[in-house]
Amino acid sequence: MTDPILRAVGLTRAFGGIKAVSDVSIAVRTGSITGILGPNGAGKTTFFNLLTGFTKTGAGEVYLQQERITNLPPHLLARRGLVRTFQLAKPLAGLTVEETVLLPALRVGAGQDRRQARERAAYLLDRVGLAAKAEATSESLTYGDLRRLEIARALMLRPKLLLLDEPFAGLGAGEIETVSQLIHEIRDREEVTVLIIEHKLREFFKLVETVIVMVAGEVVAEGTPAEVVKHPKVLSAYLGERAYEH
C-alpha cells in the first residue's frame, strides 16, 4: 500500500461563528479517483478552498506526499502539482482557446520550452476534443466546451492531484458522459490522482472508487459507493436534499 498523496488532518474553518468545515480528516489514495459527496452547503467547496490555499485555514494541517503544505498560496500549490478547477467554468476575456490552455506555461519562470509547451497544449486540446476550436476566442465556447477547456488548462500543469469542483454542473447528459470518460482517461494515462466534489449521485457513483460524504461541514461516512449508499446518515441527508431539489 503506497502512502496517500494527500492528507488533511483536523481541517476547520468558520465564517462568522458558523463552522463551514469542522475537524475534517481525510486521506486520498495515490492513483485513485476519490469523490467528496454532500448536499448543497455541506462545506465541500470551502474544503477545496482550504486544500488549495484559496481560503486560510482556522485549524488543521494539509500534507501533499508527506510534505506540510498548509496555507501555502494557490500558485505555489499549483506548481507543486495540486491543481484545481472551479465550480463555475469561466472564459478568459480576449484570450483564444489555445492561449487559455497555454496560460500556465507563459508565466515568468515556468521553465518550459515554448515549442514543447505548444505541442503539449495542442495534444491536450485534442484530448479534450477542442482541437478544431484552438483559434476561437474562449468567450465563444459553449458551457460544456468551457468545462473541458478548464480541464485541459489544469492538465497543462502536469498535476499530481487534480481537484475537480463539480465538473458536471451545468452539463447535459451527453456531456456528462464525455467528461466522465475524460476523467477516467486522465487518471489512467496521465498518472493523476483525482479528487472530485459532486452532488449528482448517479454519474458520480459510476466514476469514483472511494466516496467521502460530508454533511454540515463534517465527514459522516467513507467507503466504496456501494457501502456509502447504505449508510443511514447518507440516506437521511439525501432524502432531505431530494425533497426540495427538483
Binding site: 488549495t52 500558485h75 506548481r79 478547477t85 507563459l106 508565466r107 488548462r153
Partner: peptide, 27 residues
Amino acid sequence: SDAGLVLRAIGSDEAICRAAAIDVDAY
C-alpha cells in the same frame, strides 16, 4: 508579450490565474 497575455488573463479572472500557478500579486 507573454507577460501582457498573462496580465489580460489576470484582468479577466484572478482566481483562474492563481490556479494556473501564476503569482498574480507579483505580476
